[in-house]
Structure formats: C-alpha cells, structure tokens
Design a protein around this nucleic acid. Structure first.
Lengths: 115, 115
DNA sequence: GCTCTGCATAATAATATAATTATAGAACTG
DNA sequence: CAGTTCTATAATTATATTATTATGCAGAGC
C-alpha cells in the first residue's frame, strides 16, 4: 500500500494547517518570500522550531524553498489548489505584519560591530 | 480576553478537520443526515467515540443536531463558509458509502425477535 | 584554511489528542 | 412503572505533537 488514500492526504493537509504558528507563517508568506531568520524574529520561536514547521509545510506542498547563498527562502506554492482556496478566507494578523515590517531579518548585512 | 483571535478559530477549525474519522463523518453527512448509531455502524468505532467526534464537529459549527424521538440526527451546516469552500474538494470514500447503503441503522424499527 | 552565520536534524520533555470502558440520563415499549 | 434503547459524559490509557537544547553541515568572508 504505497499509495495514500486521498482521505489520508487531506487529513495531513489539515493537520499541517491546524497549528497557529504555521497559520501565522502562511500569513506572513503572503506578503513576500522569507528566510528562516526572518520568521524566527517575527514569530519569536527558536530557529529549529521554525525549521521544523517549514519542513511540514514543505512536505504537504504548501511552500517551496529556494536557496540563495547562505539563506533559504520560503514562499507559498501558488499551485496548491486547497491552499489557494483557503487563502481567500485568511485572517489578517496585524501584529505579525507590523513586526515583519520592523524586522531587518537577513537583508541587513550585519556591520560587525552592531549587536 | 473573551474573544478568540480569528487565527485561533481557524486553527481550531483545521484541528477538527485533521482527523480522518471526522473527515469520513463529514463525507457521510454529505449523503444525508445521520444518527449516532448509523455512524457507529459505518465507521466501526465505539458509540462514545462517535459522540466525542460529533461534539467537536458541533463546537466549530460544521454540523447541526436535531433531536427526533430517541435519536439525535446530525447534518452538515450548509451555512459554514469554510466548510462549504472545502467540500468542493472533498474526496469520495467509496467503502464508507457502500457501508452506509447496507446499514439499516436506526431506521429499521427492530422487530424484537431479530438479532 | 579558519571562523562565523544560517539552516537542518536528533534527542528530549511537556502537552494534547483519540480510543476504550464504565456510567448516567432521556425517550420509547409494554 | 419497569425494562430497553440511544446518546452523552467521565475516567483512563496509548499515541502524537510541539517546543527546547545540543550538534553538525554548508556557504561567505577574511
């Protein structure tokens, strides 16, 4: 039984969507592609935590990754039918969006003195 | 903080949808309204198990209940926007549908001799 | 080549979830 | 009213899930 039932797949999709942190991530990715360090900063959880969430989001095909130098950029997979359907009802999370604005993330090449 | 964030609500909706048994229940309710004993028979789990699932489905407003005599009939809430959206992509579970056909459920008034 | 930064994975601990059995209440049946 | 049926809830147990810390690997910059 290599083939998962479609029920199994759907359940897995919803399981991935059932975590608030992942919902926040998806919301943030609507704005633009983001790297792990961006998300770590905005979400306020540990880097490994973000990585784990991204893995699950990737596994079900909600996000795609693109490696750019040192960074890994994640973006929404616009070809995922269920995700696109659901995005139409996505709630805004103003606080996250504000934090995303304020965050410098990986974009600011660090001037080594500054902490 | 009486009001749940919409993120919380959405996450809860997906959590309810993330269980295969509940997905099967929703699929079955697409056919017609069903009572707990129907579902117990088709799903092959215990009666309290079905009741618990129905409670969660009711809590997030996916299903409605109607009491009819001795029975409690559940049906899909056609006014739930997210549910309606998602139903468009619902997978068929032929085996469940077959079992539903075959089941007599609560409809057959038991002729007391029959086991 | 050495060091630092960004990311992934492994191991672990705390918490949540779903099944079962046992029990109780409400509505029919005689 | 006594017995039976259908459903809900409580208690328990087994299993999943999510967070953290520790660790390793790859690319960038000196």
């Amino acid at each position: 039984m290599l083939q998962k039932s479609s029920l199994e797949g759907l359940s897995e999709d919803f399981k991935v969507l059932s975590d608030k942190t992942r919902l926040r991530i998806i919301g943030l990715l609507r704005q633009r592609e983001l790297c792990v360090c961006d998300l770590t900063e905005v979400l306020g959880i540990s880097q490994p935590g973000v990585s784990q969430h991204m893995r699950r989001l990737k596994q079900v095909g909600f996000v795609r990754e693109r490696k750019g130098g040192q960074w890994v950029y994640y973006s929404l997979n616009e070809e995922h039918p269920l995700l696109m359907l659901i995005l139409s009802q996505w709630p805004a999370v103003p606080e996250d969006e504000r934090r995303l604005m304020q965050t410098k993330g990986c974009r600011a090449p660090r001037t080594q003195g500054s902490e």
